[in-house]
């Protein structure tokens, strides 16, 4: 999903995304990992008992879903624009489409528009089927000063 949009001169950098991830304690606490496929950057988060919000279903906490959209959007921005410092999330608007099951969750994002100071990002999370997203998010990031 994030492959087609390439903004600015730099080539995508998986190494910079990985470097940004390991200096983000909260993302490591959630257990987020990164992989690079033919379709661009992808986040992967394993299911874990302490990520549950509703024990009756059980379903993943809405705050985990929101956090994964945030982290996926941020790391994709770092990846695509090869940023060596972290962009800052200004606002996020999440639509919860399906409940998150106790299963691995995948995330991808794309730059809808990247400017010099701001980037508008669309992020998606899914579990079994990329065609059946569990949540989508629209995010605005302030880019680090160059």
């Amino acid at each position: 999903m994030n492959k087609p949009v390439q903004v600015g001169g730099a080539a995508p950098s998986f190494a910079l995304a990985q470097q940004q991830l390991i200096k983000m304690p909260y993302a490591l606490f959630l257990g987020v990992s990164l992989r690079q496929g033919s379709n661009g950057l992808e986040t992967l988060t394993a299911d874990r008992a302490d990520l549950i919000g509703n024990t009756n279903l059980p379903a993943m906490h809405g705050g985990v879903i929101g956090s994964l959209l945030d982290i996926t959007g941020m790391l994709t921005l770092v990846f695509l624009k090869a940023l060596d410092r972290s962009p800052r999330l200004i606002d996020i608007d999440i639509d919860y489409l399906r409940s998150g099951q106790a299963r691995p969750t995948y995330g991808q994002a794309e730059i809808v528009r990247g400017g010099r100071r701001m980037a508008n990002i669309r992020a998606v999370l899914w579990q079994d089927d990329p065609e059946r997203p569990i949540a989508i998010g629209r995010l605005q990031f302030l880019l680090p000063k160059t």
Partner: peptide
Amino acid sequence: ERLSGDAEEAVFHSGVILATIDN
């Protein structure tokens, strides 16, 4: 520490704030 958004800056990660608001 585990709620940190940036190991160097020691601030709450935005996702943590979002999760607490949701809850």
